[in-house]
Design a protein around this nucleic acid. Sequence first.
DNA 1: ATAGTAAATGAATAATTATTCGACTTACAT
DNA 2: ATGTAAGTCGAATAATTATTCATTTACTAT
Lengths: 191, 191
Amino acid sequence: MPKPKDEQKLAAIHLQTMRLVNTTGFAALKMADVAQAAGIATGTLYVYYKSKEALINAVYLNTKLEIIDVLLDNAHANPDYFLTFKNMWTAYMQYCMQYPEKMLFVEQFIYSGLIAEEVIAQTEAKLIPLNQFLTYGQQKGLIKRMDIELIKAQMQGAITETIKFLTKQQQTLTAVQLNDCFAMTWDALRR
Amino acid sequence: MPKPKDEQKLAAIHLQTMRLVNTTGFAALKMADVAQAAGIATGTLYVYYKSKEALINAVYLNTKLEIIDVLLDNAHANPDYFLTFKNMWTAYMQYCMQYPEKMLFVEQFIYSGLIAEEVIAQTEAKLIPLNQFLTYGQQKGLIKRMDIELIKAQMQGAITETIKFLTKQQQTLTAVQLNDCFAMTWDALRR
DNA sequence: ATAGTAAATGAATAATTATTCGACTTACAT
DNA sequence: ATGTAAGTCGAATAATTATTCATTTACTAT
């Protein structure tokens, strides 16, 4: 039996790839840099990923799935729709503040033309429960009756832009500001 | 007297740079491709811009300033704050739908690490009137009293994300949808 | 222990691509 | 008309960087 792949190395590769992309931009991402930052040889990187493109796609998929899990894990079947929504949104926002590099990495690559169509499709499929949750809110007369995609764009866009701003300023939201931001999003969506 | 630089070539360079970045992603942007798409020789490109980085920065600055102009040109001193706000937002959104490539290009580069700090500062300075307009709305008790930057993030994020979605779907908003989107943004900001 | 297998290494190589350069053309002032 | 400063061209060059590969190392099952 052979020596197994090292989970820690894999984790280091993912972390450093995100870190490098977020600090120096994608244009400057070099395989040799990733390897060095992860503490392995350049050639070793190719044991784990057959190309730079494969590396980016793997980190993207991994991260995006993790983010979606955070979002949906908090969609508990609470009888109070508003509370459920607030819990979901808040948990998601807090996660994004805790790991802005993950959120920003994903954002940077959705429209980069580098992510395989199949990978995009896979992540979108996993988001179906969110659509159902919003549709249910519309049926109960709590959410504005308009295209679900426009509603999601409003919500996600606000979060993304806020995180970008916070990252640039190297700060996070106070509890009051977190509530303020939620108020804006809820007021935008409520009927 | 020498032969002057060709304004049409310059315009073609800018247009094709944006087009290429938006269709194939920044990673795939090659100077030779830009030159070919603009109908000039590779060497000629270097008459207009001394490096790839200078090219990107110029296209960024140009485009960003144009977008800010659209936004502020519509901030007429209308006595009705709501109407002024609605006009501004609508004109901005319509412009973004008409030239999504400009908006997406700018978005893609703000956090790329490629745009010079000085260029970013220059564009932000030009946005001061928008801050004043929002502060005025707060003073009149029409806009929620919270950090202006969080308010801007809410507005800008929603627009950006919506344009990204529309572009992916190759569609634009119907008149009804445009109103719906405005309603969400206004409800988010109003007291 | 030991053999077998795959991971790990990093220098060498292959590709890719930004940039330069010398020959040539063009537009304008005189 | 003519000189000239600058534009134009695209092949050649210089850099950069992804990828390969011969070799070494480490792990696991027997």
